[in-house]
């Protein structure tokens, strides 16, 4: 059981608080998504947990001990931070061999993780010739090298193609199912929702949410229905009669807020309204996340004037 515990963690850079009194626990057996806009302090928090940066205040432990106190840390914790880290003139296999040697990890693990991350055929090539996606896979291979109980990945799907993204989702799921602690940072809500069981949301260094993904969706996502009909008048009347508020858009479709397809579908059917389209709106998860982090974003574009 390798649990990650962060207690009142604070990091200041010249008076600016990058991480501000953050407390959370990452539990094994599930994928925890670590979300936040750019500059929210995700990477800083990961570096503090991994003992690379010194906290201004607070503590971070992995399996009950500070990272720096772990004997052969790669056997306990695997981490992916920078894809540019491996030396461009070294081969992928040699990069992993060096890491294996430092933690007395068996040589065969190098070939195993190369195979697992799909790099076996390019392992003898210099890292400088790798694409961003291949470097990303090499970083993940390094994280898995010591068969660790906890895995921390900073934006692992960066630079991966569609196939790679599907692969990493499966990998994260498998690692969690094997009982490992999995913490994955991202700045994209929808992507995180595709693999995470639990969410930690950070904004301007503060922890904004620590909740199961399902509860987050339930509590924050306003259900909406998209409807299209041939009889706009009847639909308007039926919605109004049942206390729903629909908005008709120029291209002819309606949006009904605070409603679910189950209700609207039955309602339309009872009223004998012919429906051309009936769907739950998906974009609202991203919206809920943006609402939560609004005002916590460090770099925001000025609002655009509406043109219509």
């Amino acid at each position: 059981m390798t649990r990650i515990e962060v207690q009142s963690l604070t990091k200041e850079y010249g008076g600016r608080r990058a991480v501000d009194d953050v407390t959370f626990t990452v539990r094994p057996g599930r994928v925890t998504g670590f979300l936040g806009p750019n500059g929210a302090g995700k990477s800083t928090t990961l570096r503090l947990v991994l003992g690379l940066d010194r906290p201004t205040r607070g503590t971070a432990t992995v399996g009950g001990r500070p990272y720096a106190a772990l004997g052969e840390p790669l056997r306990r914790v695997g981490a992916l931070l920078d894809t540019q880290a491996p030396h461009g003139s070294r081969t992928g296999r040699d990069h992993l061999r060096v890491l294996a040697a430092s933690n007395r990890i068996a040589r065969r693990r190098v070939d195993e993780v190369l195979e697992e991350t799909g790099l076996a055929t390019v392992a003898g090539r210099r890292v400088g010739t790798y694409s961003l996606g291949m470097r990303q896979r090499l970083g993940i291979a390094a994280a898995l090298l010591g068969d660790p109980g906890a895995v921390l990945l900073d934006e692992p799907s960066n630079g991966l193609d569609a196939e790679g993204i599907i692969w990493i989702r499966g990998l994260l799921r498998r690692l969690a199912d094997e009982g490992r602690t999995v913490l994955v940072s991202s700045h994209l809500m929808n992507e995180t929702a595709s693999f995470a069981d639990h969410l930690l949301v950070l904004g301007r260094g503060r922890l904004l949410a620590d909740t199961p993904l399902r509860e987050f969706i339930h509590a924050r996502v306003e259900p909406r229905v998209r409807v299209r009909t041939t009889d706009d008048g009847a639909l308007r009347a039926a919605l109004a009669a049942n206390g729903h508020e629909g908005v008709r858009h120029e291209d002819g479709h309606w949006t009904v807020r605070h409603a679910r397809v189950e209700t609207i579908g039955v309602l339309a059917s009872r009223a004998g309204i012919p429906l051309l389209e009936l769907a739950a709106e998906e974009a609202t998860l991203e919206r809920a996340y943006l609402d939560l982090t609004a005002g916590e974003t460090e770099f925001t574009a000025p609002p655009q004037e509406a043109r219509t």
Binding site: R47, L50, G51, L52, Y67, A68, A69, L70, P73, L74, V77, A79, L81, D82, Q84, A85, P86, H87, L99, S102, N103, A142
Partner: peptide, 18 residues
């Protein structure tokens, strides 16, 4: 000097934190 390029030192210190 190779350690001071592109975060290589981080990878090194993750494997050897002392």
């Amino acid at each position: 000097s190779g350690e001071y390029r592109g975060g290589a030192l981080r990878v090194t210190l993750l494997s050897m934190p002392r």
